Measured scan of single mutants.
Amino acid sequence: HNLTITQGKLFFHYNPKLCLSEIHKMEEVSGTKGRQERNDIALKTNGDQASCENELLKFSYIRTSFDKILLRWEPYWPPDFRDLLGFMLFYKEAPYQNVTEFDGQDACGSNSWTVVDIDPPLRSNDPKSQNHPGWLMRGLKPWTQYAIFVKTLVTFSDERRTYGAKSDIIYVQTDATNPSVPLDPISVSNSSSQIILKWKPPSDPNGNITHYLVFWERQAEDSELFELDYCLKGLKLPSRTWSPPFESEDSQKHNQSEYEDSAGECCSCPKTDSQILKELEESSFRKTFEDYLHNVVFVPRKTSSGTGAEDPRPSRKRRSLGDVGNVTVAVPTVAAFPNTSSTSVPTSPEEHRPFEKVVNKESLVISGLRHFTGYRIELQACNQDTPEERCSVAAYVSARTMPEAKADDIVGPVTHEIFENNVVHLMWQEPKEPNGLIVLYEVSYRRYGDEELHLCVSRKHFALERGCRLRGLSPGNYSVRIRATSLAGNGSWTEPTYFYVTDYLDVPSNIA
């Protein structure tokens, strides 16, 4: 807008934040220059609390790290170098490059900038070799853009010569660093050979998330399962459950009422301010606690030095998902009996873990797994792929695949051998790939016309006998059925096997 004052003059007093240069501009645009008398524009009460600059400061050096910015700028000295009290560095987070010096300023003089007072450097006698002032900004957020400017702080001049310097606002972004852990990993099994893994992005990506790394490792069953005799009275049979499938998407929606109208769909109840505040506090606490764990609990591995020492970490090797089922080394339970199943799973520490690289999504279907087997899954978020990966501390989750139908069934015939004193040795093959492992066998036998009897055969007993022995049988026709019990439950009964026990007292003698 054009402003013209045809008559009258300007009068400025007691404006401590208004620089004289701005008042002189007002004289020019209003056409009143030359009308004012000496005392109409006070030299001592206008701009006496402001830094009124008329020179431009330029930054000469900028260096960044993930949490620091090192700045240096060209030296500046007023005509009387004693008038320079120091520099004021202003900075704040700036997602967009549209910041002005006066953003967030209120009537009390406060604003949204963080201000650092910096002492002037030592003055050199040689004007050509003056030290460049600077400042190291610490405690910054990774991968965050900051708006920065600097200006001088000078003393009051009796001659009211307006001098000083100020830089333009520059924008500097800190470097990326390792992201925080992925949030809320959930693993479920939808079949006997697959596990579905879902997660949420890290709360602090500290860069642009480029991919996720998912490692999985087959877990050995508890050692007590191999040692305890679950045929003993009072000892509860062990059981394991597989990871249940995901709930429906509708039930997972946030901010939804727990109660549904019987007449149909209901609208979600909005969260109160107290609920939102509580969630923010919980989120802040979780982030602080995660940072504490990362800094205190997890110790970084030592990389190899120039002395030739090897990095103890196993090298990563990509495998196809079809090879995942046989990740671990199978060892027989008892070496003397080769027909026992290889369900003991000690994992070799030198073995390469299978892994998958996930790009542009937060889910993965891990296939080719062994049925009813526990897996430990390790999830890392990465925001750099080359020249070397920059990934987060791992988040861990466990899951067990679903049982395989008929995996616990005894394959092959049940054979028998009759000894003296009416002892019958029953023999059968253990299931080759049971659900988890076989903890015991149930032997059901009966003599024709009598009630059915049951015998429990422990895992250890089966390994020693290759089956079991029935003792003290009365003469007669017998039928026997056997079924295995694994961590997933009972298998199917075998087809009945028949044998006849004679009275050993009636056996004919070869003595003449």
Rank of each mutant, 00 (worst) to 15 (best):
S243M: 12
K432R: 07
T415G: 10
K432P: 11
K406R: 12
E221Q: 04
A463N: 07
S320Q: 10
Y504N: 07
S283W: 10
F298A: 05
E281H: 12
P314E: 04
E417C: 03
S398F: 07
E420K: 12
R471Y: 11
E495C: 13
V439K: 08
V423D: 06
S284G: 13
D311T: 07
G322R: 11
L237Y: 15
D250G: 05
Q275D: 05
C231H: 00
N339T: 12
R319E: 14
V439W: 12
S342W: 03
L437A: 07
K236V: 05
Q384P: 02
N255D: 09
A335D: 08
H461N: 07
D450T: 10
P270Y: 08
C231Q: 01
I366G: 01
P332R: 05
G234D: 03
S486V: 01
R447G: 02
P332C: 10
S257E: 06
V393L: 11
L470M: 10
R353K: 04
Y500P: 08
P496G: 14
R483V: 05
S268F: 14
N339I: 07
I377A: 15
E433C: 15
C382I: 06
T347C: 06
N421T: 10
F215D: 11
D409I: 10
L470R: 01
E404L: 05
V331T: 09
P354D: 10
E247R: 10
E260K: 03
D261A: 14
D273S: 14
R390T: 04
Y230P: 04
D503S: 09
P312H: 13
T340A: 07
P387F: 06
E282L: 07
D291I: 04
E221R: 15
N295S: 08
T340E: 13
V365K: 02
D323V: 11
P238C: 02
N490D: 03
I438K: 01
E249A: 13
S342F: 12
L321W: 11
N295V: 03
Y500N: 04
D261R: 03
A395K: 04
P475Q: 12
D385K: 08
Y478F: 09
S458E: 08
S243K: 15
G325H: 05
I209K: 15
L280F: 13
M402T: 05
Y375M: 13
G308D: 09
R481A: 14
D273Q: 12
K432N: 13
S398M: 05
E221V: 11
C382R: 00
H371Y: 12
R301E: 10
W242A: 03
A463Y: 06
E351A: 12
W493P: 04
S243C: 10
L440P: 00
I209M: 13
C391Q: 13
E224Y: 12
L235M: 11
P403L: 02
